[in-house]
Design a protein around this nucleic acid. Structure first.
Lengths: 192, 192
DNA sequence: ACCTGAACACCGTTCAAGT
DNA sequence: ACCTGAACACCGTTCAAGT
């Protein structure tokens, strides 16, 4: 078997999409690649570095898609970010768990802050606002994937009664836009 | 040794505050309690149930504090939530990983939604807005605790240059209020 | 240069057995 | 009722050894 970092990362993503993060071990990954676990350590220093590579790979996909968008605004960034995160099961957890300043991720962070500046956000607030926007999308996708996984563990019935037919994760696109609106209007309201 | 769920949960919180979540195993916890790992399974079905108990314990602390506040508004809920989460290292991760509808947590969710309704949020939007508010505080505390842990792994210097002297996690209280303002003003702007 | 066998020090969990 | 010994099936990681 001829391994390289790319094929290992892609195999890892396949496993994630089948069984989720907790089923992804160096051993199951090796087995999927028809290789021994120790071999992976020739290509990655450790599991953390592999996870970092996955986050970076996803970030590069996002960068590539963004490059094709002209006059990209913050809405489009948020939507593309969400879409690409959704393509990899448990990606929000992976992003939370890894070092964020790899090349393509840094590009995204810088772009996000630039687009916020275009929205009128003061320079002193950029890091907080950027973090908050990032956290919003990550948490949103995490909730979506959690919801998709356990259609069982829902709200207890007495609870559900109180909030009938809401715009919720059953209407995920609408709900995402609503959340995004809150954030963007909030940004603008606090900069005026 | 006379064990019960409370003492086990408190010992677990102590370990979290010393070495963080990844150092908390059933075995290290048992050792801290001067007992064997198998004993813990008399009191908790499994590790997940223990984690759920910890989240519920933190939620009960929050409930107790809130009970003493008269005319509680959404700001105060957010601040007390943040403060109590900060008392337990890696608590945001624990909240994300566990079933949310335990008794005291459910009380907090219902209260949060009520306070949002007071703010003028439409009933149809309550679940999304509630989730978003919850995610905001959890992510914020997670970032604070991450920042406090690795004072090393900072922004790379070329990056830091672009954003001089921001209101960021080095001014955590100010930054939290700024983020909270964004959220609340955004809520109000999208309900008008 | 790239992969493996074999080991090390861990995990969560179960369950018959002890008191 | 409450705890333990001993085991099972896993982890991530290392490293001498193979090709």
């Amino acid at each position: 078997m001829k391994l390289d970092r790319q094929t290992i990362q892609l195999a890892a993503i396949s496993l994630l999409n089948e069984d989720g993060l907790e089923a992804l071990s160096m051993r199951t990954l090796a087995k999927a690649l028809d290789v021994k676990a120790a071999s992976l350590y020739f290509h990655f220093k450790n599991k953390d570095e592999l996870m970092e590579g996955i986050a970076e790979l996803i970030s590069s996909r996002i960068s590539q898609r963004l490059a094709k968008v002209e006059n990209c605004d913050f809405y489009q960034l948020a939507h593309i970010l969400r879409e690409e995160l959704k393509r990899v099961n448990d990606s929000p957890r992976i992003f939370e768990d890894t070092y964020p300043f790899t090349p393509n991720r840094t590009k995204l962070i810088v772009l996000g802050m630039k687009l916020m500046q275009d929205l009128g956000v003061d320079k002193r607030h950029l890091t907080v606002a950027g973090n908050m926007g990032n956290n919003f999308v990550l948490s949103y996708v995490a909730d979506e994937q959690y919801f998709a996984r356990d259609s069982q563990r829902q709200m207890p019935p007495e609870f559900a009664e109180q909030f009938p037919s809401p715009i919720d994760l059953a209407n995920p696109d609408e709900a995402f836009n609503y959340g995004l609106d809150i954030f963007i209007h909030g940004l603008q309201a606090t900069t005026k």
